[in-house]
Write a protein that binds this DNA or RNA. Structure first.
Length: 460
RNA sequence: GGCCUGAUGGCGGAGUGGUUACGCAGCGGACUGCAAAUCCGUGCACCCGAGUUCGAUUCUCGGUCAGGCCUCCA
């Protein structure tokens, strides 16, 4: 079975073949850390985490190098720092920490590298200098600009011929540009803004060159996979590629380009009680990270995803179903620790997570109804399959009772015990009264042959 | 204006030239003191028009609608 990935460059699914199976490289554009990140910003985090995990499964954990950068030089960061009267590092450190914590709650593994623009300045300056030497960039009025006419392939990734872009340009062209499409590699800082020394005067780098330099420094060019949101295809990735190719004489830059679709918020408002759930940080306070991760992967990564509270509720219930099966199969000893073939096949088909999830439900059904050997195998495959993409890693008890503190837990256990006693005495009115009390605590009681178990109906 | 996607049941969302996944919700039944969970069964869809074909939801063309990008937004 081979991994097939949709490449934005060729606009088709192709067999993925890394340059070196011992050293598979992937780079994904990360956040600009000036505030808590929007949920949509976490879609690539989760999507490419799935790809990272799949690649590790296929090529070995040590064979995959994944870099996800952090943009910590930016106008918005400057504005935020100025507003708070602090250095930009205070702002970027704070929001980077929050971002990483939220990503972890969403089940994302830490990338192998997390380069930061401010710590890559030497490489950025060096790359700009090389571009000037190669005749692909020029200095003008304190700026350094990339000369888009120096790169014949410019526009190929996004499918925009240069002349059309010029015709469609809706932004005023700075007077120092040779061509309207030329973009900034280095620019002077405004008074009060952070600046770095360079041969072209003190200033700061343009956004695109940061990524090219960070890739070259952390992974080396060319890389196997470059990922990011669909909105980055143009101009960011187009420009990155132009820079990387012209600075290194390497024609490839990245062997595959993967882009995830956007989250749509439609018209529906998220439940008011949830507050501003557009921020992942707030959303994570209202829903388990695993449910949000599930919701983000429920559709194909390239398709737009309708994001609303119903989607999240359904995601949580889907996980209830799977965790419920595991909980009921507590005594089943898992046999086999490999992901199911059908599950892997789905993932290897350009990360068809929806299909892969369907396989998880199939395994859960087998676990509920199969013969003993079948159950043991289904449990092993379910755990291994789901675990491969970061699901069902919690104890089922924790999933269903995780939000309960000790005091409440002992109170619930007391009520359950009292109800059991009433039921043994066939005092149904009393048993129902107690159940009503539990329901008020959002506790769902499930009577079984071995006594009653319970779980939280909604997690808070 | 240019370029590019997409349109599947009540909701979400896969996939396929002939029998349409899966989950949630619904309905009937089993189980239960009653429930819940689970199990069994079941209803419900492939935007419109034309074409190709023995046969199209799936391919082609047109239309309609929706969304995205067009210089720093995942």
């Amino acid at each position: 079975m081979t991994l097939r990935l949709h490449d934005t460059m060729t606009r088709e699914k192709r067999d993925f073949v890394p340059a070196d199976p011992q050293r598979v490289t992937m780079y994904v554009c990360g956040p600009t850390v000036y505030n808590f990140a929007h949920v949509g910003n976490f879609r690539p985090v989760v999507v490419f985490d799935v790809l990272f995990r799949l690649l590790r499964h296929l090529y070995g954990e040590d064979a995959v190098l994944y870099a996800a950068n952090v943009t910590d030089v930016d106008d918005k960061i400057n504005a935020k720092a100025a507003e708070e009267g602090v250095a930009i590092g205070v702002v970027t450190d704070r929001y980077l920490a929050a971002y990483n914590a939220d990503a972890a709650k969403l089940g994302a593994l830490p990338p192998t590298f997390q380069p930061r623009a401010t710590r890559t300045m030497d490489a950025i300056v060096a790359m700009i200098a090389r571009l000037i030497d190669n005749g692909a960039a020029y200095a003008a009025e304190g700026h350094v600009l990339f000369d888009t006419t120096a790169y014949a392939d410019y526009g190929k990734l996004s499918g925009r011929p240069l002349d059309e872009m010029i015709a469609g340009a809706r932004v005023e062209v700075a007077p120092y540009k040779r061509n309207p499409a030329d973009f900034v590699l280095w620019k002077p800082s405004k008074p009060g803004e952070p600046l770095w020394e360079s041969p072209w005067g003190p200033g700061r780098p343009g956004w695109h060159i940061e990524c090219s330099a960070m890739i070259e420094q952390t992974l080396g060019l060319p890389i196997d996979i470059h990922g990011g949101g669909i909105d980055l295809v143009f101009p960011h990735h187009e420009n990155e590629r132009a820079q990387g190719v012209c600075a290194t004489d390497d024609r490839t830059y990245s062997r595959f380009w993967l882009h995830n679709g956007f989250l749509n918020f439609g018209e529906e408002k998220m439940s008011k009680s949830l507050g501003n759930v557009a921020l992942a940080h707030d959303l994570l306070a209202a829903y388990p990270g695993e449910a949000i991760r599930w919701a983000l992967l429920v559709g194909h990564y390239r398709a737009p995803l309708e994001w609303n509270s119903e989607l999240l509720d359904q995601a949580r219930r889907s996980l209830d179903r799977l965790y419920g099966a595991l909980q009921r199969a507590d005594e089943v000893v898992a046999y086999a620790s490999h992901p199911a073939d059908a599950f892997l096949t789905a993932l290897e088909d350009d990360l068809n997570t929806a299909q892969a999830m369907a396989e998880l439900f199939r395994l859960a059904s087998k676990l509920e109804t199969g013969a003993p050997e079948e159950k043991a195998r289904a449990k092993g495959e379910l755990l291994a399959s789901a675990g491969l993409i970061g699901f069902l890693t919690a104890d089922p008890e924790t999933w269903f009772k995780g939000g309960v503190d000790e005091a409440l837990k002992s109170r619930i256990d007391g009520l359950i015990a009292a109800r059991d006693e009433a039921r043994r005495a066939k005092d149904w009115p009393q048993a129902d009264r107690i159940r009503a009390e539990l329901t008020a605590l959002s506790v769902e009681v499930m009577d079984g042959p071995a006594g009653a178990t319970w779980r939280l109906k909604e997690q808070v």
